[in-house]
Amino acid sequence: MAHVLITGSSDGLGLMAGRLLIAQGHSVTLHARNDKRAEQTRAAVPAAEDVLVADLGSLDGIRSLAAAANAAGRFDAVIHNAGLGYREPRRVETADGLSQLFTVNVLAPYLLTALMTRPDRLVYLSSGMARGGDPDLSDAQWAGRRWSGSQAYSDSKLFDVLLAFGVARRWPDVLSNSVEPGWVATKMGGRGAPDDLDQGPVTQAWLAVSDDKAALVTGRHFYHQQVRFVSAEAHDAAVQDALLDYCAELTGTAITGTTATTGTTGTTGTTTIHG
């Protein structure tokens, strides 16, 4: 039995993945952004081990989820499912002065990865729209450009692939992969989405717990349990490192190396998580 945390799992694919894993006999902790949604989630999935509450729209909220997750004990796998969609009509700024979409879609999985006790497996939810993403970080917060929700979303989903691959390279003892679940009829995908909704949660659940040889890999991008093509940029270590370094600068927390020690620099206050 695996101990699994799924972020953004009060509805949609996260909730479906949770139900699927519970049906397979695994211990699953879900996550909701507020108390009301958590209460609804507990009622919908009473077999869940717990429902953690945190709003991932701020760095403090992300840190609070990491602390709550660590207090719950080490997880064998984390599915980073939480995300905002491509229909955002305008740039929303967080209390940290950052793009809300970037914060939820990229900084949340990054910072949770850095701060949580290291699991055996990490699964990052991406999208087919990642193939239209741009890895350029010169205005990743959309402070200077005219806002485009679809492009900002595509960029964020490419960043999630870069995050998965970068962590796989820096932490070779962890299976770190990304998944595109397909364009399915969730609240984010819309009613007219053409892909099979029942298949939407299968691959991320499989990567989190399966002992199938095909699931015991790292630094791969999947669609329906098959390795899927992503741009050559996603495999470029320099591009991966640029994103990881950028996220470290924004959060004050860096993911580096493979040794299990932690330290704090005396000049910038940046916490460095070694392994």
Rank of each mutant, 00 (worst) to 15 (best):
residue 2 A to H: 08
residue 4 V to G: 09
residue 4 V to Y: 05
residue 7 T to Q: 02
residue 8 G to C: 06
residue 9 S to L: 01
residue 10 S to Y: 02
residue 11 D to Q: 14
residue 13 L to S: 10
residue 17 A to Q: 11
residue 20 L to N: 12
residue 25 G to T: 01
residue 28 V to L: 07
residue 28 V to T: 00
residue 38 A to T: 08
residue 38 A to C: 02
residue 39 E to K: 14
residue 39 E to S: 14
residue 42 R to V: 07
residue 48 A to D: 09
residue 49 E to L: 07
residue 51 V to G: 03
residue 51 V to K: 05
residue 54 A to V: 02
residue 55 D to W: 04
residue 55 D to L: 06
residue 57 G to A: 10
residue 60 D to F: 02
residue 65 L to R: 01
residue 66 A to D: 05
residue 67 A to K: 13
residue 68 A to H: 04
residue 68 A to E: 09
residue 70 N to Y: 07
residue 71 A to P: 00
residue 72 A to K: 03
residue 79 I to F: 10
residue 83 G to V: 11
residue 86 Y to R: 15
residue 87 R to F: 13
residue 87 R to D: 15
residue 99 S to G: 13
residue 102 F to H: 06
residue 104 V to D: 08
residue 106 V to D: 13
residue 108 A to E: 10
residue 109 P to H: 01
residue 109 P to G: 06
residue 115 L to S: 02
residue 117 T to Y: 01
residue 120 D to M: 04
residue 126 S to C: 02
residue 128 G to Q: 10
residue 129 M to N: 13
residue 133 G to T: 10
residue 133 G to E: 06
residue 133 G to W: 08
residue 134 D to E: 01
residue 136 D to S: 13
residue 136 D to N: 14
residue 141 Q to D: 15
residue 144 G to M: 07
residue 147 W to P: 01
residue 148 S to A: 06
residue 164 A to R: 10
residue 165 F to N: 14
residue 166 G to Q: 08
residue 170 R to E: 12
residue 176 S to H: 05
residue 178 S to C: 11
residue 184 V to R: 08
residue 189 G to C: 12
residue 190 G to W: 14
residue 193 A to I: 09
residue 197 L to D: 02
residue 197 L to P: 07
residue 200 G to K: 00
residue 200 G to E: 04
residue 202 V to N: 11
residue 210 S to Q: 10
residue 214 A to H: 10
residue 216 L to F: 05
residue 218 T to D: 03
residue 219 G to V: 04
residue 219 G to C: 06
residue 220 R to L: 10
residue 222 F to Q: 09
residue 226 Q to W: 00
residue 231 S to C: 06
residue 235 H to T: 09
residue 243 L to F: 09
residue 243 L to R: 00
residue 245 D to S: 15
residue 251 T to I: 09
residue 255 I to K: 05
residue 257 G to M: 12
residue 258 T to V: 04
residue 258 T to I: 07
residue 261 T to I: 05
residue 266 G to S: 13
residue 266 G to N: 14
